[in-house]
Computed example of a mutant assay.
Amino acid sequence: MKALSKLMAAIMASSLLFGCSSSGSTEIPTIGVAQLVSHTSLNTIRDAFTDQMEELGYEDGENINYDFADASGQTSNLNSIMSQYQDEDAAVVVAIATPTAQAAANISEDIPVVFSAVSDPVGAGLVDSLEEPGGNITGTSDEVQVDQILDLALQLVPDAKTVGFLYNASEANSVSNLASAKEYCDQNGLTLIEGTGSNLTELQSSASVLCEQVDVLFAPNDNTVASGMAALSQIALDAQTPFFVGADSMVNDGGLGTVGIDYEELGIETANMVDEILNGEKPSAMSVKVFKDDLNIYINQSALDSLGLTLPEDIQNNERLVIVE
């Protein structure tokens, strides 16, 4: 039955997506899939997106074409990528992460845009509201649960008094999370110290300084930080500073822990939204999907052991606990 359902989905997708030009040739829609940089979080979303599209009956080169683009961490490359999608007359643009989505918004009058992994779509100027986006753009949001992550930090390091916040100040999502972290620290009698960097070298320097000043280090789902997690997490470990992060993939890459979503779910829902648009739905009528429920606790066992920390019993017994070996 499952195989038959997939076959019928493929047939329906083909009939909906194949169109004939005046010369009688078949036109296959192009989906532009762009990301700011290659790192585990964004790659997980991209791969889950294409897997789900296949589940929905779309076969690359048969009834859909993908144009994947990576800006190599340079925001200046994003506008060129979007211009290319305009030239190709892409059917939909998938924009992974906030800077990519902001660049894609500039062409959304011409091409429907579905963003993914944008922490604060309203604050980033992408939509009027989560419920009613208002323009030719919608998508999925990985709203970072800063309060719950810092709660986790205090559970593991109950004597902590200072929190280091490591981020790239040019990333709107990180600036939004900084405001949340400041509010949490003010409410809980903690001192927050910022450390910034626009590239890995600068972030490594900031991380080294912070680790001498703070009890715990925290980085949100910052793309520049995520790209350099191997080096940054080692700096924290060498300084014996617990490093809490904003995404499960950043735990996989060396961070101590987080509370959040499975990033594969973002990719799956992004594909579902693209499918709806290809079948006639308007982005302006599609609410932004915010992932903030059914969250997991992710702990890196190796980092935990290296720091000599022990999980409290209530965390050990939590059914949402995911241990990364």
Rank of each mutant, 00 (worst) to 15 (best):
A207S: 14
S205H: 05
F165L: 10
C211A: 10
S174E: 09
L192K: 00
A181S: 05
L166N: 09
N252D: 10
Q213C: 02
C185S: 01
N252G: 11
L166C: 11
Q213G: 01
A247K: 07
S206C: 09
D238W: 06
A230C: 03
A239T: 07
C185D: 00
A231S: 14
G255N: 14
V214E: 02
G164M: 01
S198K: 13
Y184I: 01
G246A: 13
S249H: 06
N188Q: 12
G195I: 03
Y184S: 01
L166Y: 05
T162G: 02
S174L: 06
L178K: 14
D186S: 13
L178R: 15
L256Q: 13
T224V: 13
Q234R: 12
G164Y: 00
S198W: 02
N188H: 14
E171Q: 12
Y184N: 00
G197I: 11
D215E: 05
Q155K: 14
L178D: 03
A247I: 07
C185E: 02
Q204S: 11
T201K: 12
G254E: 06
D248R: 13
A230D: 11
L166V: 08
S208V: 05
E194P: 06
T162I: 04
L200T: 10
F243M: 07
N168E: 08
L154M: 15
D215M: 00
S198P: 02
I193H: 08
L210D: 01
V245N: 08
T196D: 11
N188F: 07
A153V: 11
K161P: 02
E202P: 05
T241F: 08
L154I: 12
N223G: 04
T196Y: 06
A169T: 09
L178E: 14
S249L: 15
L156Y: 04
T196V: 13
A181L: 01
L210K: 02
D248M: 14
A160Y: 04
G228R: 03
G228M: 10
E202Y: 07
S249M: 15
L192I: 01
A236R: 06
L256I: 11
I235K: 09
S176W: 00
P158L: 08
K182A: 11
V175P: 02
Q155L: 12
S205P: 04
A236I: 09
L210V: 01
V163F: 00
S180E: 12
Q155I: 06
N177S: 08
I193F: 04
Y167K: 11
L192F: 00
L156I: 15
A236V: 06
Y167N: 14
G195E: 04
D215V: 00
D248T: 03
D186E: 15
A153E: 08
A169R: 08
M250F: 07
V225W: 04
Q187V: 09
V216W: 00
T241R: 03
N199V: 05
G197M: 10
P158Q: 10
L232G: 06
A226N: 07
T196K: 13
F165Y: 14
V245L: 10
D186V: 09
Q240I: 04
C211Y: 05
T241V: 11
N188D: 04
S249D: 09
G189Q: 05
M250T: 13
V209W: 06
T241M: 10
E202R: 09
C211P: 02
Q213K: 13
C211T: 12
E183S: 14
